[in-house]
Design a binder for these strands. Sequence first.
DNA 1: AACTATATAGACCGGTCGGTCTACCCGTCA
DNA 2: TGACGGGTAGACCGACCGGTCTATATAGTT
Lengths: 177, 177
Amino acid sequence: MEAAKELTYKQGVGVGVDALLKVANVARRSLYEHFGGKDGLITEVLRLTAAEDEAAYRQTMEAAGDDPRRRLLAVFDWLGGIIAAPDFRGCRYLAAELALADPDHPGHAVTRRYRERVHDLLERELRALDHPQPAHAADQLLLLIDGTLAVGASRRDTRPAAAARQLAEQLLDAPRR
Amino acid sequence: MEAAKELTYKQGVGVGVDALLKVANVARRSLYEHFGGKDGLITEVLRLTAAEDEAAYRQTMEAAGDDPRRRLLAVFDWLGGIIAAPDFRGCRYLAAELALADPDHPGHAVTRRYRERVHDLLERELRALDHPQPAHAADQLLLLIDGTLAVGASRRDTRPAAAARQLAEQLLDAPRR
DNA sequence: AACTATATAGACCGGTCGGTCTACCCGTCA
DNA sequence: TGACGGGTAGACCGACCGGTCTATATAGTT
């Protein structure tokens, strides 16, 4: 799984099974016993990283203290660090969605649920902030997050996280004005 | 080229050469004569669609009249229509960037230049608006655009264009307050 | 000691990959 | 008429694809 997480991110979900097995030092048969095939492995990778990434969101907000506004803005600072990493290659889930042409691939359900969970995390903070439209604002924050990751993947020179954070501040402050 | 534009979008840049040739009704040799290979074809497809899409941005803004603010917001209304199309499958350029693992693939240069041109289009309108930080605000608009296309590809139920437009309005109005 | 479950290595399958090749066909121009 | 450029059709190449298979090794249980 560790090897699969890394390789499917660096090379995309189009990596060959042989390459996976080689870096993982695992027999071919074991893969098919455990996951049923490549699609099963990819789905499981998405499921596992989704759980890890959701936990990372929680931890980032937890470490930012009790103020919901600070907790939400901390997400963008955290994203800034992720994007700045030299091996950042964009959002794994968006890449998987765009690469898996078959709309019935089980991986799509995993990424969809992941986005819903992140959305709910954001919405909860917005409710704590007494935001008048927490669900709508969470949509917008998610849009800023996706935009940040997309720009981070395509224009390495800019600082999209800071730009997004500024927009997030306007979004959070707007209803109180 | 028409067949390649359609297939590389619907199936991703991972489509097989045979599939391209079949739907295009073109001989295998012709492809290699004209484009040198699959990578050359992909690069040329990106170049061509980039020119078309840049023209679409211009036309969208042109049709919105002379007010720069209306012209910029019209972009998001236009995006809303694109996303709503049943065959929308996300941003072609972001998908290509995420799928082409080799950072030296010539396609990357094409997508980068495309983004720069769109950025310049946005920046020009912001200058006409006397925005105090036109380059920075153009970065933010581009982030909203990328976020809109990303969300549109992954959560077909929401209306990301409207959400992004609202954020864009805040962005455009903020400096005047 | 025997059995079972789980792992390994690796041959093997048909199919597809991107790419090169030969042979042919046809309209243009000399 | 004949040469030729640009197209098509399709065989062919080695490599790799995802997946199945047999045979073997190892650890734990009874």
